[in-house]
């Protein structure tokens, strides 16, 4: 798929693995939409909507609390677990920042073959590896082990443009995600689009509405005093509009993850980002 990338994203591509998000601090983290039927004129990272001190925390890897989980995951990478006696490194090599390249920017997607073929995000792929390859217990969603390893897989692509496939067998998930995005939910009766398409840039009370981009997830949030997944954030939005949330890691949120990732196609991966 051909992409029209702004200077920011183009620089990110050139700089590759060593690209520092800090370089974006003075810039406007946005790209032009890559698809003709894209609903936005300009695709803007949530980074752009946050105050200077929040950005500064993200820009400094030593200050960014999400980096602690990354460090832990780098240790876990080479530790054997489960009945098969394998570690991540046994299949994927000793340097995940090299071997995981291309994962963070392209998930969620269909993976594996035959009976194992399914649409997965990184979290679900990690648990597939754990249960099928390592014969280990699955990790719980949004717990430190899972968050750390998800951050690691995404971080290997930091600075790379989001590049999810929405054609072929992913098309049905894309359509499902789009439908959810534009459906009103809850007692407040709002769709994602009401805040994040019609009103981004505006304030709702003290909240500066962003486009709801997920290129920085899992992200550290000051409100959470911790790191959380995109699905946790979706759940929080649904609770805010007084809706019964979908389940993390399950089909509705996987579809929404694909669709929102596509809305941010071309934005640099910022994981682990820092938000308010």
């Amino acid at each position: 798929m051909k992409k029209l990338l702004s200077l920011t994203a183009a620089l990110a591509l050139v700089a590759g693995a060593t690209f520092a998000v800090a370089e974006l601090a003075d810039g406007y983290v946005s790209v032009k939409p890559t698809a003709e039927d894209h609903p936005l004129d300009e695709v803007i990272s949530g980074y752009q909507f946050r105050i200077e001190s929040t950005r500064a925390t993200q820009d400094d890897d030593f200050e960014n609390p999400g980096m602690l989980l990354l460090d832990q995951a780098l240790d876990t990478w080479s530790e054997a677990d489960g009945a098969a006696g394998k570690s991540c490194a046994d299949c994927h090599g000793d340097d995940p920042i090299v071997s995981m390249k291309g994962a963070g920017s392209t998930f969620p997607k269909f993976t594996e073959k035959g009976d194992h073929r399914a649409f997965r995000n990184i979290e679900n792929q990690i648990n597939f590896c754990r249960t099928e390859r390592m014969e280990a217990k699955p990790w719980k969603y949004d717990k430190p082990d899972m968050l750390g390893m998800t951050i690691l897989a995404r971080h290997a692509d930091r600075g790379e443009p989001v590049n999810v496939a929405v054609d072929g067998d992913a098309a049905a998930m894309f359509e499902k995600g789009k439908e959810i995005y534009y459906t009103r939910y809850g007692q407040l009766d709002m769709a994602c689009s009401h805040c994040h398409e019609d009103n981004y840039g505006n304030y709702i009370r003290a909240d500066h509405l962003s486009q709801g981009q997920i290129n920085g997830f899992p992200t550290y949030r000051f409100k959470w005093q911790g790191v959380g997944s995109a699905h946790r954030r979706f759940k929080g939005c649904m609770k805010n509009i007084r809706a019964e949330p979908f389940n993390v890691g399950e089909e509705e949120f996987l579809a929404l993850e694909l669709y929102t990732a596509w809305r941010g196609q071309g934005l640099p991966i910022e994981t682990p980002a820092v938000r308010n």
Partner: peptide
């Protein structure tokens, strides 16, 4: 985007307590 402030029906997945 404005909610309906005096309506009880027609909601989609309203949380139990609401």
């Amino acid at each position: 985007i404005m909610p309906a402030f005096y309506r009880t029906s027609g909601f989609n997945r309203a949380a139990g307590k609401f």
